[in-house]
Design a protein around this nucleic acid. Sequence first.
DNA 1: GTTTTCTACTTGCATTTTACAAGTTACGTG
DNA 2: CACGTAACTTGTAAAATGCAAGTAGAAAAC
Lengths: 111, 111
Amino acid sequence: MRSPCPICAALDLVGDKWSLLIVRDMIWLGKTRYNQFTDSPEHIPTNILADRLKRMERFGLIQSKPYQDNPPRHEYHLTDKGLELRPVLIEMIHWANKHIPGTITPPVPID
Amino acid sequence: MRSPCPICAALDLVGDKWSLLIVRDMIWLGKTRYNQFTDSPEHIPTNILADRLKRMERFGLIQSKPYQDNPPRHEYHLTDKGLELRPVLIEMIHWANKHIPGTITPPVPID
DNA sequence: GTTTTCTACTTGCATTTTACAAGTTACGTG
DNA sequence: CACGTAACTTGTAAAATGCAAGTAGAAAAC
C-alpha cells in the first residue's frame, strides 16, 4: 500500500484503464466468460485480460468457477466486493455524460 | 476515445494511479502548488506530477494561474469539471473503507 | 473421419509508461 | 556571496501495455 488513504488503496486495486471495464461488463452486461470480454468494443488485449482476471481474483473482486474439466474452463463472477463498485461506476457515468462530449448514456438502466 | 462508453471515456482521462490523488489533494486539502503535491504521503515522482498537471490541464480538469513572472510559477486550481469528480471519489472512499482493511476514514469531512 | 472452427489462453517482442535519482535555474535568506 | 528552496527537466532502468502469433483440446462441418 502506498498510503492508508482509501482513495489511494482503491486506485492500487482498480486504478488502470481496464479493470473497471471488466467490472462494467459483468454488472450491466452479465458477462462471465473470456470471449465475452474480448468482444467488448474497447478490444482488450488477451494478455491483459488474462492478467486482470487473475489480479482481480487475487484481490477478491471476482471468483472463478470451473464449468468443465477437460480442458479446464471457468466462468468469472463478481464477489460482493466487486459488485459494490457499482456506485463508483454510476458516479463515473454521471460525470462523463455531463463533461465528456460524445459519451452515450448506456441503453440499460444504470440504477 | 476507445469507445463512446462513459466509463471508458472517464478512464481515458483519469484511469491511472496518480491523477485522482492530485484531485483529492486539491478538493480536501486545498493544495495548489507543486511542492504541496510532492509532500503527500504517496510521494508522486516529480516527472509524473509535471506530466499529470499538464495532462489534466489539457483535459480541462484544472487550470493553472501564474502567481509570479520571474521565474514563471503557477498555482493549479480545479475547474468545475475537475471539482465534480468529488462524488466519484466519495464513492471510492465508501467502498475502500468497507472492503480494504487498513484504510483510514479521512480526518476531514468528505461530504 | 479428417479438416476446420472455436474457446481460452500463453508467449514473444516492440512500444510506452513509470520510478528513481540527479541536475538546473532563478529567487530568497543570512 | 554561500546556501537553501521552489518548480521543474533530464537520464535511465524497470515495469506495464499493446499487438501478433502460437497452442491445446473439443466441437462442428463436410
